[in-house]
Design a protein around this nucleic acid. Structure first.
Lengths: 211, 211
DNA sequence: GGTCCATATATTGTATACAGCATCCATAAT
DNA sequence: ATTATGGATGCTGTATACAATATATGGACC
């Protein structure tokens, strides 16, 4: 029975990502692999592995010979990613089969929990993430899911910063309950439109905050 | 004057990708980093770097402790990626500013060259790739471009195999001239629809071949 | 004081070393 | 003949070593 089939590199990846989310690695600052390696008590190899992956995903910037730094928050990028997600999430929902009462129940459960996470930023964002995992979990286009998951990481970073610094202590759960209502009514079209609108609105809100 | 600002890892990445395209690393076979390292006369480190990147991009499969192997060609995956591109490429075109006569000229040039690449698979695919770089090059949503480029890698692999093994020696340039005509007429809507249709048709064609 | 250069230090990218599994083959047991 | 079992071998994941280059520090000169 395998104990841990997660490579060190992947664990380190998650660890660093959490540091970025928490703002402990602030936008713009340089990230030295040796320092992180020592802090996490591993060698530089898995750390660099994680850093390169984060760079490919856009969390870090990498320059040959000059290492890594945390990519600064930037209005344009947020808008860019939002536009893509506004196209892809409705697409994914359209491909997803009918929602079973069971899954609708799960979504309701999560939406409920989301309403009660005053203050706990990390938990709110994580619940939101799980909500989307349930929402799209049955979509047969696995690649589409991968791309969406990859992209969502960008606004997630902004969301962390936003909730942490702008005083808003919880996510509005209005969006979730609306989507859920549409799904219960069997109105997938409507739900899809809500997803799209949310990206436009949500992005605008955060963009406005970004100055 | 910078001599080589490309890390070994990236060079190795391109090298391995070419091997996969050429079919020298055939679908399903195991890829041993040490062997590649020796072949390319570098150490295992940059090779593993490249392999992990290729795994994230879906060219290889990776399993902890069991290394890498070339991901088998698979109808479903091709269809999945096609569906995403069918959504994203029209989106990108819609965001792109008016085409200047200059860029239209470049596109015409490339389309012309494409017609005359009988037999040279690698060149045909590369020209097709350049065509798309010009087509979307001015799209202001850089992230969107990155995602599209990333995804196009998948059908490109199939296209290589298809052209190489199915006896079709050149890409149909019909698609390109049609898109170009629409753009010359200022009909971006029409061009977008053509892009979308191409993904559906092209994918079907390759899917049919895949048995 | 500010700018340039030279030297020293730090940090990166790559190579090599090493320990633990996975895989394979030979032999034994059924 | 077929399946188990044990050990040898090879490969992977991680740690460490090393060379090259980037950054920092300090003084010379204006």
């Amino acid at each position: 029975m395998p104990i841990s089939r997660i490579s060190l590199g992947n664990q380190v990846y998650a660890e660093i990502l959490a540091l970025v989310y928490r703002g402990e690695l602030a936008p713009g600052i340089r990230v030295r692999d040796a320092a992180l390696a020592e802090r996490l008590a591993v060698s530089r190899t898995p750390v660099r592995e994680a850093l390169m992956r984060l760079a490919r995903e856009g969390v870090l910037d990498a320059e040959v010979g000059r290492g890594f730094r945390v990519r600064p928050l930037n209005r344009a990028e947020l808008g860019d990613v939002g536009a893509i997600l506004a196209a892809l999430e409705p697409l994914a929902l359209g491909l997803t089969p009918e929602f079973t009462p069971e899954r609708l129940g799960q979504l309701g459960e999560l939406a409920g929990q989301l309403e009660q996470t005053r203050g706990d930023v990390a938990r709110a964002v994580e619940l939101d993430e799980r909500w989307h995992q349930v929402l799209f979990g049955e979509c047969p286009n696995r690649r589409l899911l991968e791309v969406i998951t990859l992209l969502r990481q960008v606004p997630r970073r902004y969301l962390h910063a936003y909730l942490r610094e702008a005083g808003r202590v919880s996510l509005s759960s209005l969006h979730h309950t609306r989507v859920l209502a549409a799904l219960r009514a069997g109105d997938r079209e409507g739900a899809a439109r809500l997803l799209e609108r949310r990206w436009r609105r949500g992005i605008e809100e955060m963009e406005a905050w970004l100055r």
